[in-house]
């Protein structure tokens, strides 16, 4: 099993690498298109600001590589948001994989949302062994509204998408690598669930 974490200079990817290691797998960090294309699983991380992250993807040409990938791909947090069509953050054009647009929370609640919240309406093999209303760790100010591709939702003033899927592309708004045992189970499902095999 060859696992590649896309390294484009965005955020804390060490934690994802460590979480994968705790599950008994090894992951390599790479920004090399050939290496990414050859992997069995690709993880597309990201924290920070959408506009500057997208600029980094474009400067490396990875914005063309990622949408063409054929193996299971998991976008995490900002990674998932960048896989959408557009983000209100910095009025940024995304990779256009998911048919959704990212918008800012317009709630009286605290923004960013920081902490543990529940996921429900779980609809994917990604959540095998995960119970409805499980807690996950989230940190974000922008969100993806519910849409036809939503495979898990969360409530924060509004019910929104915390996980999304189209074909071989998966995205999670929460941080599986920081979501205790449940997060590790979701990550493990992504890495080893037979129904995700390419």
């Amino acid at each position: 099993m060859k696992i590649v974490i896309i390294d484009y200079g965005a955020g804390n990817i060490q934690s994802i690498k460590f979480a994968i290691k705790r599950l008994g797998f090894d992951a390599v960090l790479s920004s090399d298109a050939q290496e990414i294309k050859a992997a069995d699983r690709v993880i597309f991380p990201g924290v920070g600001e959408a506009g500057s992250a997208m600029k980094m993807l474009k400067s490396t040409g990875l914005d063309k590589v990622i949408p063409e990938l054929k193996q299971p791909v998991l976008g995490i947090c900002l990674g998932m948001q960048l896989m959408c069509r557009h983000s209100e953050e910095g009025d940024t054009e995304g990779l256009g994989i998911f048919h959704a647009d990212v918008v800012k929370f317009k709630t009286q609640l605290k923004v960013p949302q920081i902490g543990w919240n529940r996921i429900f309406n779980l609809k994917s093999e990604l959540f095998e062994g995960i119970k409805e209303q499980e807690f996950v760790y989230l940190v974000h100010s922008y969100y993806v509204p519910e849409c036809a591709e939503t495979i898990a939702s969360t409530e924060y003033g509004v019910e929104y998408t915390t996980a999304i899927q189209k074909d071989n592309f998966y995205g999670v708004q929460f941080h599986p690598e920081k979501s205790s045992d449940a997060g590790e189970k979701i990550l493990e499902n992504f890495l080893s669930s037979p129904s995700l095999l390419k």
Binding site: Q14, S15, F18, A19, K21, R22, Y137, V139, H175, E177, K178, S179, S180, D181, G183, E184
Partner: peptide, 11 residues
């Protein structure tokens, strides 16, 4: 920090 991050699965 590195040692903690290797072992701990909460933020």
């Amino acid at each position: 920090v590195r040692s903690v991050a290797e072992k701990v699965n909460i933020p």
